[in-house]
């Protein structure tokens, strides 16, 4: 993306791109859930279902030289960032041609080519890393932005406090994106935070902070443009709280005893895809057959990625101790 400024580009083509990103992530993950029940994908699988507007609204605003740090719920971020679907799917299968060589799996997607720094599965653990990436850019005088995604559960971690303080104190170019889906695994925000208005908490670190409807991709994108422009201009961090919701369980092991079905259903009605797609149709921005064509194209990409992952080689056992230290 070369365009800057805080005005969302509401061309039809651009709006369809936003929709395509979200549908692509959703359909990919629906397939992952199916593959999980077939035991093709193992370990933990955390789906982004319901939160797609956040990655889709923010990541395309970045340049290729910017950096992304994500969490264990990062399939969407990787796909939107441009990590190929085949390499992500192969990683889910644990195959050598996966984007992390098969060593990471669902929670640890990495890709040096797109400056995608993982897939961190320690809640809050990615924040200090983002500080360091931004510190390197700051010290060299590069104008890259590091975007750090984390859930509202991370707000309770000491690393959240330490990192926001450091970023603000040292004027580091970090965009903190809190994906507030209301639950830290199964514990509601009200049960874990003394201050549930997270963006207000962030503001106390003397940084620009904003809360946005995380179910509205256009609103998220507009906020991201403002934030990234501010960071590049001022060289200071910005905090964005995206209020969103996770439709599916925390992971595939979660019986969801902590929330009502009615609550999930009411949020589903506000879902980022259903709402945006409806709005595009009402306003005649998505023409007949266009969404179906997008879905068909994505389905073909998914089928190809599954075929690729199925056919891909397992890493030989002889390689077991590789990648512990640099090869001599």
């Amino acid at each position: 993306m070369t365009e800057s400024g805080d005005k969302p580009r509401l061309t039809r083509e651009h709006l369809l791109d936003l929709l395509r990103h979200m549908i692509r992530v959703r359909m990919f993950e629906d397939k992952c859930a199916e593959l999980y029940t077939q035991e093709k994908i193992r370990g933990f699988l955390h789906l982004y279902d319901g939160e797609e507007a956040v990655a889709a609204g923010i990541i395309p605003v970045l340049t290729p030289a910017d950096r992304v740090v994500a969490t264990y719920r990062e399939h969407g971020h990787a796909l939107v960032r441009g990590v190929s679907m085949t390499s992500v799917m192969a990683e889910m299968f644990g195959k050598q041609s996966g984007c992390s060589g098969g060593r990471g799996g669902s929670m640890h997607l990495f890709d040096a080519a797109t400056n995608f720094y993982g897939g961190n599965a320690i809640v809050g653990g990615g924040l200090p890393l983002a500080i360091g990436l931004a510190l390197a850019d700051h010290m060299r005088g590069d104008d890259h932005v590091t975007v750090c995604f984390f859930g509202e559960g991370a707000v309770a971690e000491g690393e959240f406090h330490e990192s926001l303080n450091l970023a603000s104190l040292w004027n580091l170019p970090v965009l903190f994106v809190c994906e507030n889906n209301g639950y830290a695994m199964g514990t509601a925000l009200e049960l874990t935070e003394s201050e549930t208005d997270i963006h207000a908490k962030a503001a106390s670190y003397n940084m620009t902070s904003e809360a946005v409807d995380g179910m509205d991709v256009v609103a998220v994108e507009a906020a991201a443009r403002r934030a990234v422009e501010t960071i590049r201009r001022d060289g200071k961090p910005v905090f964005l709280e995206c209020r969103t919701y996770r439709f599916r369980p925390h992971s595939m092991f979660d019986a969801q005893l902590y929330r009502d079905k009615a609550e999930v259903a009411s949020w589903r009605e506000k879902g980022p895809i259903v709402r945006f797609q409806g709005w595009l149709r009402e306003n005649e921005l998505a023409h007949a057959g266009e969404v179906e064509a997008i879905e068909k194209e994505i389905q073909a990409e998914i089928d190809a990625s599954v075929a690729f992952a199925e056919a891909a080689e397992w890493e030989p056992l002889a390689d077991l101790t590789k990648h512990v230290y640099a090869e001599a």
């Binding site: 890393l129 360091g132 510190l135 330490e162």
Partner: peptide, 12 residues
């Protein structure tokens, strides 16, 4: 925070 920052900076 600052040890993690050292790690991130080294990666960059």
């Amino acid at each position: 925070g600052f040890t993690g920052a050292g790690i991130g900076a080294a990666m960059a």
